[in-house]
Design a protein around this nucleic acid. Structure first.
Length: 296
DNA sequence: AGGCAGGTGGCCA
DNA sequence: TGGCCACCTGCC
């Protein structure tokens, strides 16, 4: 790795938003995306999304700074979109029922600046199909191996995640060599499904939430939880409310809903938190993991 | 050293 | 519907 940060190349990223070290970490490395890692020597996060390889760090005045492996202008624009929620976070949070919900209010206060990423749709689908029954560390490893094995080299020794067209030309055996385990078949079959339906994924992702989710459930390896993650992180459908074990614990304990099943909790979430339920979910998720004292 | 992990799909009552 | 279980792999 020759990729030492060249401090002269650091540039400010204009964001009407303040991250804290904690909310930046939670945003980039809290389970929404799996291709960011902290580089201690640089005091920065290095990450890959789409065809962009960048580094991001907190600037002296609390702003955000970045540098890119190449084509800084394109990276700046892409990062602006990726972190685009920052521009409207305040008004969005204000539409959440924090005034009447002390649990939510505490979660919002605990991680000021946390946002939902706007990730490329295809790779969000891929990452979350790979996420089932895996911890964050392992999901990151799988993504890394997939990228190395069949993703485009976008900078020296840096690979993007393969797109679905490429995946359709990848054998299940090759996928298994990337430590996907039984998920290899899911990826393989979803790739075939998508290959037979050009534009399907993009079109479906813009449908109203309920229809979009129903459609995504047709994909092998995509159940309720993964569908919600794809819609929330990859299609800006903020109504999506993924229910995983963490949220299940939070809602059971802090909202007095023990014994409720994931599907029931998903309905509760959308009813209670409203059109931006997914945003509330992310804060509750961060809070639950924090208090559970582990990072995945 | 093994249990278990941010789930899904298939089968049975 | 509701409940149960197999499924790969490697981390803690």
């Amino acid at each position: 790795m020759s990729a030492d940060p060249q401090s002269s190349d650091w540039q400010r990223l204009e964001l009407v938003h303040q991250f804290t070290a904690a909310s930046l970490r939670e945003t980039l490395d809290g389970g929404q995306a799996f291709r960011w890692h902290w580089v201690p020597a640089a005091g920065a996060w290095r990450g890959i999304f789409g065809r962009h390889a960048v580094q991001v760090r907190l600037g002296a005045e609390g702003g955000l700074e970045f540098c890119a492996a190449s084509d800084t202008a394109a990276a700046r624009a892409a990062l602006g979109g990726y972190l685009g929620m920052a521009a409207e976070l305040g008004p969005l949070l204000d539409r959440l029922p924090h005034r009447s919900d002390p649990v939510l209010a505490a979660a919002l206060a605990a991680c000021p600046g946390l946002i939902l990423l706007r990730q490329p749709l295809g790779e969000t689908l891929l990452a979350f199909i790979c996420s089932s029954t895996k911890q964050i560390v392992q999901i990151k490893q799988i993504c890394e191996r997939l990228a190395t094995a069949c993703g485009e080299e976008i900078a020296p020794e840096v690979h993007a995640l393969p797109d679905w067209g490429r995946l359709a030309r990848t054998s299940e055996r090759e996928l298994r060599e990337c430590a996907l385990g039984f998920r290899a078949r899911y990826v393989r079959e979803t790739a075939e499904f998508l290959a037979a339906r050009p534009g399907w994924l993009e079109r479906v992702s813009t449908l109203p939430y309920a229809e979009a989710k129903t459609a995504l459930l047709e994909l092998p390896g995509v159940g309720a939880k993964v569908a919600d993650c794809v819609l929330l992180f990859g299609a800006q459908q903020l109504e999506a409310f993924p229910v995983d074990v963490w949220i299940l614990k939070t809602l059971a304990r802090r909202y007095g809903l023990p014994g409720w099943k994931p599907g029931q909790l998903a309905q509760f979430g959308r009813a209670h938190f409203g059109a931006l339920a997914g945003l509330a979910q992310q804060y509750l998720f961060a809070q639950e993991r924090r208090t559970a004292g582990r990072a995945g």
